[in-house]
Design a protein around this nucleic acid. Structure first.
Lengths: 213, 213
DNA sequence: GATAAACTGGCACACTCGTACCACTTTCAC
DNA sequence: GTGAAAGTGGTACGAGTGTGCCAGTTTATC
């Protein structure tokens, strides 16, 4: 029986990414059941999601089709509609996961190398992956659910900058530095501008942001 | 006879936007001929382009299909493939035109209201239009031709900021201010963040950028 | 007028897409 | 065990896509 016939979605196979979307829909049904069977199902779902992220990374979200995802995950086509209510939901979760991974990666990188070395991370990082990320970010403007994730992403980045500079999360200096950072990053990803320029501008922006008012 | 069968593209019905793509392809053939016939053709091409821009504006570039463009322009389907070698070319020219229009609009607005009032323009402006614009900007990262247009767009914006501040085009202060501006703009378009915050941040960024080093 | 080129518009091919459908097997609670 | 629920996978439908094709018409040049 396909669970999407009349209900939004059954299993709790998700990371804490789309909490707001379906919290509170008849919480009683999923009480004691679904424990053993779903171990494998959960794995399958994760495989599909990973495949979606990979495809997104390589070809933008136009590449994330049910068939492509299924093939990539070595699973039958119908598995995609079984574990995800629609393509939109698949995309949303892929976006959320991508954002989370990206934030973690960057956080670790900054902890190791410092903020000024960020341009070097740009050079190293997977450009097409970030292209997909930004693609989804802009696309998020057309979809309320995605918009929420996009907002969280920005907030995460701002917090990241603030933490690195040992500033409070709401400090406008961190906020402003992030805006510069974001554009430089986006321009690097889209236009592939020379790295030297980016490096220079970033240092300048940091000096600017950190000198006393 | 369809001109796209074996040649890239025949008529010179284009604004000076994609100069690099087909300059120098047998310049002799289009000498004295094609002057009167093409008046109407040129108009049709422009109509199609306008339709493409409109669709882009409303539904992102997923909405720009041959059929949709043709219907919107009240022209037969085949006209789209006659005047544009492919959908990609249509998108590229639509992007170029959108960029040009947007730059002009913003220039005029700044001339009238000043740079600090830019957030108000954001509030007024057509959000979905700019969503389409940014969509194409990011998408440009995957296509060399579009990438070039994207680059020109950024340069145009930077120049715009520099001119407004009466700074030389290469002044890093203008460059940096633009980066902040761009992110605030993008965030407004995608995330619909509160306008007050944007206003405050912009003023802060301007003070920051303009005070002496 | 005649000839060639530019242009027109209807049509269909070959394809991909999201998703519904359904017979089937596995797992779990009793 | 037995029956219900969860999970599986093959298939097909209907819609929409880019684009090629081609018999026509209009226009420009001679």
């Amino acid at each position: 029986m396909n669970p999407h016939q009349h209900q939004p979605h059954p299993p709790a196979h998700h990371t804490a990414t789309q909490a707001g979307t379906q919290a509170g829909t008849q919480a009683g049904t999923q009480a004691g059941t679904q424990a053993g069977t779903q171990a494998r199902g959960r794995r399958r779902r994760a495989t599909l999601l990973a495949a979606a992220v990979a495809l997104l990374t390589e070809g933008g979200f136009a590449a994330v089709t049910h068939r492509a995802v299924a093939q990539r995950a070595h699973l039958p086509l119908a598995a995609t509609t079984y574990y995800f209510a629609s393509r939109d939901q698949l995309l949303a979760e892929a976006f959320a996961q991508l954002v989370e991974t990206e934030l973690d990666t960057t956080r670790a990188w900054i902890a190791d190398h410092g903020l000024t070395a960020l341009p070097d991370q740009l050079a190293t990082a997977d450009r097409t992956r970030q292209l997909g990320l930004w693609e989804l970010y802009v696309h998020a403007g057309r979809d309320p659910v995605l918009q929420q994730i996009a907002h969280r992403w920005t907030d995460g980045c701002i917090r990241l900058v603030a933490d690195t500079l040992h500033l409070p999360h709401t400090d406008p200096r961190a906020r402003l530095l992030y805006t510069t950072l974001a554009t430089l990053w986006l321009e690097h990803v889209v236009e592939q501008r020379p790295l030297d320029e980016t490096r220079t501008l970033l240092t300048l922006a940091m000096e600017n942001a950190l000198r006393p008012p």
